[in-house]
Design a protein around this nucleic acid. Structure first.
Lengths: 205, 205, 205, 205
DNA sequence: TATGAATGAGAATTCATTCAT
DNA sequence: AATGAATGAATTCTCATTCAT
């Protein structure tokens, strides 16, 4: 009986449906080896089924990538949006954007890695148009915060917000390449150090 | 006739040998589409020959990638090495490492892009062992400078040099994704702004 | 509730059993897209069930095709047979064979279309041996009528009955490709015009 | 030397280039088994190469079908066009259209068979838009002739030209299903008999 | 140097069918 | 009767590489 309940819960997406399980496996492999280098057979092998059986759940490999990225980006958007709407001023907002990003790297390592490695090649496929859209939305939110900070005098005015945004975005996200959850340095410490550098500078003054 | 003369000149090492030309074409395509997504046929098409003919110049596709990256990394090593050996103190060294890197992005966009996108997947192939080696050498040079700066008090002592190195390396190199030579912002300006942020911080104090 | 009653009625042989419904859906899809191009999933989708569930009703896709065609050909045989046995001479018989055929196109468009498109490929599968058998029976009946007509002088004697049969059979049946029930020209008018051409010729004399 | 000349001629499309040879093999198989049922492997096997090697010559299976049909239809158009432009009146034109069609069946059996069996499924694929276009052109030419004949009184006026065209077109082309070159009845005799039926009727008057 | 033809290994995808529940 | 998950064989297509000419 207990088992049946368990299964029933799983089926309805409680802990994990078969579909979600396959998405997780796919995400891991995509992140580790790259989307192109990950064959549907790799995924199927890892899931313990035949490659053709994957098509019972997803219509194509592309559809798997799509589903993996879309969910992640939707979640990130919600998080960012909340920060930009409710904050204690630009400095607080910026700090929280940074921390939320490192948190995302911690929580969704695979998805972040996939996004980082594949956007370039996914753009141009119409199914992935939302990638560019999200990209624009994210940029607008960050720049809004940076400009508000310059206007209110908490951020230096001699820096190009666009360039500053790119620097910050890149440094934060590219950290997914070396960050290991459970490693020596926690994700919170990384965010702390990064904020210290970017806010106060490397120079000892 | 005129065309033939042109070709003949090129062949005998005039401005550019056929081989160098093919490497350049390959590098461009690798950078634009990724190594895996670039087929030897793409390269051959772009060069105006048949794919099989490429094998008169190079023993394999891997060999082309190898040749493209090796030369670039050797040059970068020489540049870094010179800076680390001859400088006016850690701050000068750090500034020049950053500037040299942005210069490399400007001069060798394709190579930097390829390196950024493919290291992860090329590591593990023994022919590309030198990638990891160079990587270590570069890291050691940057960290030497950062630690010297902390020791002499020009850089803040409360930052982990390893983490700082990673942040800087990532931000600098990842800029290849958006930097366009001849665009609004010159590579020198980018380096300036980046150094201002990283040395003095974003905060207005 | 009302819907359930509806279903229940259908189930118990009201107007149409589930089985007959599935056959109808299958026939339509086979006719529209071809047997090979129609997957069991198409059929199941159109019926609102999963593809595996079809196998509770039929043992295989081939069995569906079989059932669709067999019933149609049996009916057509009965019709032809009655005409050949009871008629007012060869001319009457021929006219009624033609009219009966156009009537069949009208009544069983899908089946005729399937037969036309697939005989060639179904022949050779032993389960479909009856196709060739029916084919022979039909031919014999038509030729019997044509030869009787030549013998009695109502049909020209300088035509090869075999060739004539083929021409007539082809023209009649191939009309399924363009005939649309409810269109501008009724099936009776089509039969009329066709008989005028084939009996009296195109030439104005 | 002689052999070399032979080969050279073949290469430049003299007797038969490899490409043309593959097209011919493909056409035969498509006609015999249907396009869908003919796998690229069948074709490759028949050509004595591996299936992948076909893609050295053609970009896809669809492209092979395309090339096979396009050439045939272009040729047929030219033939029809010449007849419609240069003739001794509608009756002569109609006779020659019919004879030319049976000739096409004789000369290009495979292509005609493919066209007959596959138009329905090929239409809707944009690459094959020209099929519908040619179809319209052919129809317009036949109808032009039929209407001219009715206007000048050589053809009966009580028949719908559209319907008449369809009947004739169908009967003529569908003959590809049973016509065997070198069989008992020559293609010229078939055309003769068909013209006798269609022009003067089956009835003995 | 280059062509043209081919290999061979493997990729993604399709699909009829099975079966425990 | 129907679901949901899977099989397994086949299909189209890709691509680095080879090699005789």
């Amino acid at each position: 009986m207990a088992q049946k309940t368990e299964q029933a819960r799983a089926k309805h997406g409680g802990i994990q449906s078969r579909r979600a399980e396959l998405l997780e496996i796919s995400a891991r492999l995509f992140a580790e080896q790259g989307v192109r280098a990950t064959t549907v057979r790799h995924i199927a092998d890892a899931a313990g089924i035949l490659s053709g059986s994957l098509y019972h759940h997803f219509s194509s490999k592309e559809a798997i990538v799509d589903e993996v990225l879309r969910g992640f980006l939707d979640g990130l958007f919600a998080t960012y949006d909340d920060i930009v709407r409710n904050n204690d001023g630009p400095r607080d907002a910026l700090e929280r954007l940074v921390r939320a990003s490192f948190q995302a790297i911690h929580d969704s390592r695979d998805q972040v890695a996939i996004y980082q490695d594949e956007v370039k090649h996914l753009q141009g496929i119409s199914r992935f148009d939302y990638l560019e859209q999200r990209n624009r939305e994210f940029r607008d939110m960050w720049i809004e915060v940076l400009e508000a900070g310059q206007a209110s005098g908490v951020f230096r005015a001699d820096l190009d917000p666009n360039l500053t945004y790119r620097f910050m975005r890149d440094t934060v996200w590219v950290a997914v390449r070396w960050y290991r959850p459970g490693g020596k340095v926690s994700q919170e410490e990384i965010a702390d150090q990064y904020l210290r550098i970017v806010l106060d500078g490397l120079a000892d003054d």
